[in-house]
């Protein structure tokens, strides 16, 4: 973990450690700031909160939302739950994997897209649904999916930041 990242983790834990039951709140802040929870953050959090590393690691790994690797520039979460399945989510998922060339929980080689499964986005009357970088999309078709991907590819082309 680069020094600026560990500084960020230390600052966040210092700000929030006195709140009741703070660990998940702190993990959210760390992931919001860095895009992921670096494994090296675990001992820092454990020491500051007077927990064992195992306890912190246990929490980080229990929750699907927390990731221990940096995400791509865009995170594409496809709903895999029943309502979306009834409207072709399985076919859309196959299409998305092919279009991006990755499986779920993977990031494209150029670091542009991470593909994640999600179990319900609460958009069940407009299935199938996906969320891209916090934006919700409904009634997705393979064509519409491709358009959303192309839009982001053209915006993020050029050297990696």
């Amino acid at each position: 973990m680069p020094p600026n990242e560990s500084d960020t983790v230390r600052r966040l834990v210092e700000d929030m450690k006195d709140r009741p039951g703070p660990l998940i709140e702190i993990l959210h802040s760390v992931q919001a700031a860095l895009g992921y929870v670096p494994p090296d953050a675990v001992p820092i959090l454990a020491e500051a909160l007077n927990l064992s590393r195992a306890e912190v690691h246990g929490v980080v790994t229990f929750y699907h939302f927390f990731r221990d690797t940096p995400p791509g520039r865009h995170t594409v979460s496809l709903c895999r739950a029943e309502a979306c399945q009834s409207m072709g989510a399985d076919e859309l998922a196959e299409h998305a994997k092919g279009r991006l060339g990755v499986d779920f929980h993977e990031t494209t080689k150029d670091g542009t897209f991470s593909l994640e499964p999600v179990f319900c986005l609460g958009n069940c009357a407009c299935s199938p649904a996906a969320m891209i970088d916090g934006r919700l999309y409904g009634r997705l078709t393979p064509d519409r999916f491709d358009a959303l991907i192309t839009e982001r590819q053209s915006k993020t082309s050029g050297p990696k930041q």
Binding site: A81, E82, A83, C84, F119, C120, G122, N123, C124, A125
Partner: peptide, 8 residues
């Protein structure tokens, strides 16, 4: 924590 598919 409304996680059931089909609920919103």
């Amino acid at each position: 924590d409304e996680g059931d598919s089909g609920t919103f």
